[in-house]
């Protein structure tokens, strides 16, 4: 990274530092108790206190997020392809998907628990359920937003449907899919944590619930910090993948 690129981050870093300083200094002056709002130093201390098995919780939550993300990605692309493939499949699938998407997915979480019991699997499913819809829509849009003339070109050269699909439609959809996956990355985090809130024996969501019951607020904040690091890493990875696989797409 060059000095010029670093300089771009100076304003946001300065703001971040200032907020941390205010957060550390101001609440004690207002006599706000630590169990209501712990300062950043207490939070960092809690986050690095390894008498709490952070690595195990981080591992479980990361697994749920990645599992949900992968499932949402693969399932979303498959459904998007099905919708774009023909009028009939679209007419069959779209109303069904709209109903599923308008369900408050958080409300489905207790049912998954009922069906699948405690553990990673129900939380993976919730994460996937919350995150898959944008992938479906963007895949279908990316596959169908093709210049009419490109399709004419396919017909002029007598190309079969699958070939136009592989050579023209799929690559055209790639940036759309990747931009949907950015949304999915954040949604999968929400889904995994919601799942852990409902019931779980491990994971950062469970840490937050437990810490709240014990009024151990610095630990809850620390868990939040770890969640945010996982979420940012996944989001950043999708961004990198976009630049790597779809360099022709406009970067946003």
């Amino acid at each position: 990274m060059t000095v010029g690129a670093l300089r771009r981050y100076v304003p946001s870093l300065a703001l971040f530092g200032a907020l941390l300083l205010i957060w550390q200094v101001v609440p004690p002056l207002l006599r706000i108790r630590e169990y209501l709002l712990p300062g950043p130093i207490a939070v960092v201390r809690a986050a690095l206190n390894f008498s709490i098995p952070w690595h195990a919780h981080i591992w479980i939550t990361t697994l749920e997020i990645l599992g949900g993300f992968a499932l949402a990605g693969l399932g979303g692309v498959a459904l998007g392809v099905a919708i774009a493939w023909s009028e009939t499949t679209a007419r069959a699938l779209v109303p069904f998907l709209v109903v599923v998407n308008t369900l408050p997915k958080v409300a489905v979480a207790p049912l998954f628990l009922l069906w699948l019991g405690y553990g990673v699997v129900p939380n993976v499913l919730i994460a996937a359920l919350i995150g898959f819809f944008p992938v479906v829509i963007n895949t279908a849009v990316g596959l169908t937003q093709i210049d009419e003339e490109l399709l004419d070109l396919g017909r002029v050269f007598g190309a079969p449907k699958w070939k136009v699909f592989v050579k023209i439609r799929l690559p055209n959809a790639l940036p759309y899919v990747l931009s949907a996956l950015k949304i999915t990355a954040t949604a999968a985090v929400v889904g995994a944590i919601v799942g852990e809130f409902v019931a779980s024996q491990a994971g950062l969501g469970m840490v937050i619930v437990t810490a709240q019951t014990n009024l151990n607020t610095p630990v809850a904040f620390a868990a939040l910090g770890w969640i945010s690091i996982i979420g940012l890493t996944l989001y950043g990875a999708v961004g990198l993948a976009t630049r790597w696989w779809a360099p022709w797409a406009d970067t946003t």
């Binding site: 210049d147 003339e149 490109l150 004419d152 070109l153 396919g154 002029v156 050269f157 007598g158 190309a159 070939k163 136009v164 050579k167 023209i168 690559p171 055209n172 790639l174 779809a246 022709w248």
Partner: peptide
Amino acid sequence: AVGMVFQAPVLLKWRRVVENVLLAAELAG
């Protein structure tokens, strides 16, 4: 056995120029 040129170039924006030209052969099998 016909070549078509449209008002817009309609090139595949993810393919290099020469690969775009070769698309004709690929589509024709």
